[in-house]
Computed example of a mutant assay.
Amino acid sequence: MTNQKTFTRILLTAIANAGLIGGAYASPLVYEPINPTFGGNPANGPVLMDQATAQNKHQDPSLASLTSSQSTLDQFNSQLQQAILSRVASSVTSSIVGTDGSLKPGTINTGNFSINIAQIANGNLQVTTTDKSSGASTTFVVSGGQ
């Protein structure tokens, strides 16, 4: 048994020494970020965004209910209404804004709305829009109007 113990010791010592003699060579680890937000290559941005978009299973409930509950005709009518209201707002704006860009105090009435522009303290103007059918109104102040 002593020969076997001696042989085992010699074998283990040789294996341990072989590991020490050969040594392991490695270069230092260097962290290189992938995400361009944290200093990575800017070319990675679109790829990361595409991956994130593909993995995103969340749907905004407010957007989903708008598009799924409206027919194509309803969506078209809604867009048409917004376009017409935008033109009406542009024409009202041109009648309440002077050539120098300042608001002119006064009242403008359209079919459904009344817009009142009043001079208040410190040269500010208060714009109040009232819905004639419901009586609801909204007000905001514009500074620097003369």
Rank of each mutant, 00 (worst) to 15 (best):
Q4G: 03
K5T: 08
K5R: 13
T6H: 09
F7Q: 14
F7E: 12
T8Q: 13
R9C: 08
I10N: 07
L11H: 06
L12N: 10
T13R: 04
A18E: 11
L20E: 13
G22D: 08
G22W: 03
G23T: 05
A24S: 12
V30T: 14
V30H: 07
Y31L: 06
E32H: 05
E32W: 02
P33G: 03
P33T: 08
P33L: 05
P33H: 05
N35L: 06
P36I: 08
T37Q: 14
F38K: 01
F38A: 02
F38H: 03
F38P: 00
G40T: 07
L48G: 02
Q51E: 04
Q51G: 05
Q51S: 03
T53R: 05
T53L: 14
H58A: 14
Q59N: 14
Q59W: 15
Q59T: 15
D60H: 08
S62D: 12
L63D: 13
S65E: 07
L66T: 14
T67Y: 11
S68K: 12
S68I: 07
L73Y: 07
L73M: 04
D74H: 12
Q75W: 10
Q75N: 11
F76H: 11
Q79V: 10
Q79T: 10
L80G: 01
L80F: 09
Q82A: 12
L85T: 03
V88E: 13
S90D: 15
S90M: 10
V92S: 04
S95K: 15
I96N: 00
V97F: 08
G98W: 10
G98N: 11
T99S: 15
S102M: 13
L103C: 05
K104R: 08
K104M: 09
P105S: 06
P105A: 09
N109V: 07
N109R: 08
T110E: 08
G111R: 08
I115Q: 02
N116I: 03
N116W: 00
N116T: 14
I117P: 00
I117S: 01
I120P: 03
I120T: 13
G123Q: 02
N124W: 00
L125I: 04
L125V: 07
L125E: 02
V127K: 00
V127S: 00
T129F: 03
K132F: 03
S133V: 10
S134A: 04
S137M: 06
T139E: 01
V141I: 15
V141T: 15
G144I: 08
G144Q: 09
